[in-house]
Design a protein around this nucleic acid. Structure first.
Length: 706
DNA sequence: ACTAATGTCCTTTTT
DNA sequence: GGACATTAGT
């Protein structure tokens, strides 16, 4: 309990232990071909475990050997984890020179470019970045300001206007794919089509608010990059001149907007992309397989290289994976093969319920650990972050260290967001989202007073003291209870701004310490579990102190948030050897000796909401494929017969085995049962075999309807 | 008029 | 458990 705060340094490149394939065997013919390719567009279609990242990095090395300066090579990926992995491995292979290789996520690179070129394109230098949650909050302000909140008089059963989160999803999809709002609604949210005009109105207002308040959301980073390239010729020329070669990993996860950026960035085609259509799992973010399929058309003269040999998994694991993905409707034709013989068939483990699943995983991993597999070489993969909750509790109880990837972030906790709102208002006084958040913290201040205060601020050049002047002519009319809070907030922020204009401004750590004098008492009053939250704030203060200035601190937090703290290992020595628990999305591109895949039931694979749409079901199938192909030697898929449903207040319900594990797939696996009361329930229904009769059709036709 | 408390429905994945 | 709507309370 009384652990010292864990220190997360400002995010730089992480130092990892040497990889097992440090130099590795020589590249195979196709890999070498790709690595040594010249200056024309190159598309590498690479299956799971076929060494695509390794090939990409060898290509970087080859370019450097050919005399391309490392600093003029740009490596791009879609996710932070992939970016870090790539840059780390690059460093390991090419040594110090690669330290200058440029790279990161599309969003991260866009941000760097905007800080540099934004001011000459009319973008104020003190903009702040909205993360997902902030953007939803802002959309919420729009939603109620336009009167879509309380539609009074509407019957309870009447369809409701889309929630703020949905509105933002629609808007984001529009930006990332370029498709009109109305079309998106028709295709994916048909129950909202009647409101197309209103949804567009919300999006327009949201865009206007961002501009007025000096705020950029994630999509704006990409969009601005594209616009600079397309519509600001002098700046575009400068940006293009920065890079000789651009290489993109996980290309199947990029969306049309990102493709647009690449087109404008590499008009001469010195571009390499690597991807695997079978691992495309980001359609929900607008990613499109078309990006890969159309690449040779977009970039005439493209050379296509296919990598089919798998170096990662044993033959049985590959056989199961191939069986799963072969049911896909649409894909690049390629089949993975391996020279690695031997190995056990993957386990399909039937357990009674989630508790039994946890017991099995813990028991098995301890067994393997004793046989010599380090914890770090084992991973537990889940469809969604919350699905590992039960396991995490047990691991904590048993003092087994683990590290969790994906799922809820440290930064998404309310108390962290509250604290950061103070800093953001200091950074960007027009930040309406943060103002609203701060004001609502104060006792006696609700929606109306907060909005009134923001109006007042807008009329007084965003001077904090203007909200302290309550009751005076032109001031704010507020409930008496709210006055002390408003005055205190105004005084604090005003004081801090004065100091900032002086010669010795506060560092980020110091700022947090000052802000907490006001915030800590509020926190203690609102939460009954204050101590762990206060500990989080301690840690945030420590992290902040490691940054040179507030601008860097806030931007880094928005784009590269540190791992969460509360869920980190509780083990005595921690860190060095820890089991990995990860969402499948965050596990992409990684591999482990031993992999557990949990909750292989329908409703999870595929997720219940995706089960009615064929395209979404396909994506869910690819997701399972990605999970299975992470394993090198041992793969265990668990399936709980009962699932615990919190929906109905804690009832148990029977669940079905995932439809993706059909009889053909199951033949490639070995069935394992745990516990004694399971066997008689083992007769899994064969849901894929053709039914003897179609009962539903018979029922439908009982009145002789056509 | 406004805030605070209560009730109801839906609950993914990442930047 | 969180977002949102509704009701109770000042």
């Amino acid at each position: 309990m009384a652990e010292p705060p864990r220190i997360v340094p400002p995010l730089r490149r992480k130092v990892l232990p040497p990889a097992p394939d440090r130099d590795g065997p020589p590249l195979n013919a196709a890999q070498a071909d790709a690595a040594s390719h010249g200056d024309t567009p190159l598309l590498i279609v690479a299956g799971a475990g076929s060494g695509k990242t390794r090939t990409l990095i060898h290509r970087v090395a080859a370019l450097i050997r050919r005399g391309v300066p490392a600093g003029r090579i740009l490596l791009l990926t879609f996710t932070r984890r992939a970016a870090q992995e790539m840059l780390t491995r690059c460093e390991r292979l090419v040594g110090a020179a690669s330290q200058q290789v440029q790279g990161g996520t599309f969003h991260g690179v866009a941000h760097r470019l905007l800080r540099r070129f934004g001011p000459s394109a009319g973008l104020p230098a003190d903009f702040t970045i909205l993360d997902q949650g902030d953007a939803v909050d802002l959309m919420g302000l729009t939603r109620s300001a336009l009167g879509y909140g309380d539609l009074k008089g509407a019957p309870r059963s009447a369809p409701r206007f889309p929630r703020a989160e949905t509105l933002l999803t629609v808007y984001s999809r529009h930006v990332n794919t370029g498709r009109p709002i109305a079309d998106l609604l028709t295709d994916e949210w048909p129950h909202f089509t009647a409101w197309a005009g209103d949804v567009e109105r919300c999006c327009a207002d949201y865009v206007r608010r961002k501009a007025e308040r000096n705020l950029l959301d994630y999509d704006d980073l990409l969009l601005s990059w594209a616009l600079l390239l397309e519509q600001a010729p002098p700046i575009a020329a400068q940006i293009r001149a920065l890079y000789d070669h651009v290489l993109v990993d996980e290309y199947q996860d990029t969306n049309p907007l990102q493709a647009r950026i690449l087109r404008a960035l590499c008009p001469d085609g010195r571009l390499t992309v690597v991807g695997d259509d079978a691992q495309s799992i980001y359609a929900f973010r607008g990613a499109s397989i078309r990006n890969i399929l159309d690449f040779p058309t977009t970039f005439p003269g493209t050379r296509v290289v296919t990598l089919e040999q798998n170096y990662r998994s044993t033959a049985p694991i590959l056989e199961t994976s191939n069986a799963v993905i072969s049911r896909s409707r649409e894909r690049y034709s390629k089949s993975l093969w391996t020279e690695r013989d031997g190995g056990e068939a993957p386990w399909l483990v039937t357990v009674r319920d989630e508790r039994a699943q946890t017991e099995f995983v813990v028991g098995r991993l301890l067994e393997l650990h004793e046989q010599g597999t380090p914890l770090r070489e084992m991973a537990v993969l889940v469809r969604a972050g919350y699905l590992s909750a039960d396991l995490e509790i047990e691991l904590a109880n048993r003092r087994i260290p683990y590290e969790k990837w994906g799922g809820l972030k440290f930064l998404e906790a309310a108390h962290i967001k509250d604290l950061l709102a103070f800093l953001r208002v200091l950074e960007n006084p027009r930040d309406e989202v943060s103002w609203y958040r701060l004001l609502r913290l104060l006792p006696g201040v609700g929606d109306a007073t907060a909005r009134g205060a923001i109006d007042l601020l807008a009329r007084h050049a965003w001077e904090p003291m203007s909200i302290g002047a309550v009751g005076e002519p032109g001031g704010l009319r507020v409930p008496a209870k709210a006055r002390p809070g408003l005055a205190a907030l105004a005084a604090l922020l005003d004081g801090m701004r004065r100091v900032e204009r002086g010669d010795r401004p506060h560092g980020p750590g110091e700022s947090i310490r000052l802000v907490r004098q006001l915030y800590d008492p509020l926190l203690k009053a609102t939460y009954d579990d204050a101590p762990p939250r206060l500990a989080d704030l301690d840690q945030l203060e420590t992290i902040a102190a490691g940054y040179p200035d507030r601008t860097t601190f806030l931007a880094t937090l928005a784009l590269e948030p540190p791992a969460n703290t509360q869920d980190l290992a509780v083990g005595a020595t921690g860190e060095d050897d820890a089991l990995i628990i990860s969402t499948i999305h965050s596990a992409k591109g990684k591999e482990w000796d031993v992999v557990f895949v949990l909750h292989a039931s329908d409703g999870v694979f595929p997720m219940a909401r995706a089960a009615n749409d064929e395209a979404q079901v396909d994506e869910e199938r690819r997701l399972l494929y990605v999970a299975l192909t992470r394993a090198r030697h041992e793969l265990m898929v668990t399936y709980p017969l009962h699932s615990y449903s919190t929906r109905t207040g804690g009832d148990f319900a029977y669940s079905q085995l995932s439809r993706f594990l059909d009889p053909g797939v199951r033949r490639t696996m070995q069935r394992v049962t745990v516990g004694d009361d399971v066997p008689e329930l083992l007769a899994l229904p064969d849901t894929t075999a053709a039914p003897v009769v179609d009962l539903r059709a018979l029922l439908r036709g009982q009145f002789g309807a056509p």
